[in-house]
């Protein structure tokens, strides 16, 4: 464990708790893409299948359990409890356009042709594009609630910090995982546009609104 990965994990935890809190407190999931949340749920479930078989540390197990629980709770709030506030007209990104190619790629490019490894690879690839429906929804509505932009900033920062963690691990532990690194770079690049808007607008107290 290194500081970059720890801060990255905490930023990730902050992001998903922030979103759950926003939906719960405002009793509304307006502006939130349910499709992205479904895909994040899929990411955690396919990645953490080894939750009960492969014990690494208390921290690792606890975080995995929290991520899965919070993701399921968020999906429940969006599609059941506060379903009336779900903005399905703007959450129109076709998930199958992401899941099918990612599933195919996971079969073709992986470290080991075993079920667990292919599911892990699928999870890594899916996570890199899972935010697209959310970014697409913001581009359609033209704006995002400030709390939702904080959620996206924390979520984008987590994988950016993981890239620093991978550089650190490469130089100090001689370890690197190309699949995770390439997917992590793609994932972070997708946030660049949002990061620019966040820094130039939200940081100056303005609402995040895309140029119409």
């Amino acid at each position: 464990m290194n500081i970059f990965r720890l801060v990255g994990d905490l930023s990730h935890l902050l992001a998903i708790l922030l979103l759950l809190w926003k939906i719960w407190k405002t009793r509304s999931c307006a502006g939130v893409s349910g499709k992205s949340q479904i895909m994040f749920g899929l990411v955690y479930i396919t990645r953490y299948l080894d939750l009960f078989t492969n014990f690494i540390s208390i921290y690792n197990t606890t975080m995995k359990a929290i991520f899965i629980a919070v993701a399921i709770a968020t999906i429940y709030l969006i599609y059941f409890k506060f379903k009336a506030t779900y903005d399905s007209n703007h959450d129109t990104f076709r998930m199958e356009f992401l899941i099918v190619p990612v599933g195919g790629l996971a079969f073709l490019v992986n470290h080991d042709f075993t079920a667990l490894e292919i599911l892990w690879t699928f999870s890594i690839y899916l996570e890199s594009v899972a935010i697209l429906p959310q970014l697409f929804m913001i581009s359609k509505t033209g704006e995002a609630e400030t709390i939702t932009s904080h959620y996206l900033f924390a979520l984008g920062s987590y994988r950016a910090l993981y890239i620093v963690n991978w550089v650190y691990r490469y130089y100090f532990e001689g370890f690197f995982d190309l699949i995770a690194i390439v997917a992590g770079c793609v994932q972070t690049i997708l946030y660049c546009d949002f990061f620019y808007l966040y820094v130039t607008k939200v940081m100056h107290g303005k609402k995040l609104s895309l140029p119409a």
């Binding site: 690494i56 975080m63 995982d177």
Partner: peptide
């Protein structure tokens, strides 16, 4: 093997 190291990350 070395790949299992990768799985210590979340």
């Amino acid at each position: 093997d070395e790949n299992d190291i990768a799985k210590d990350e979340l």
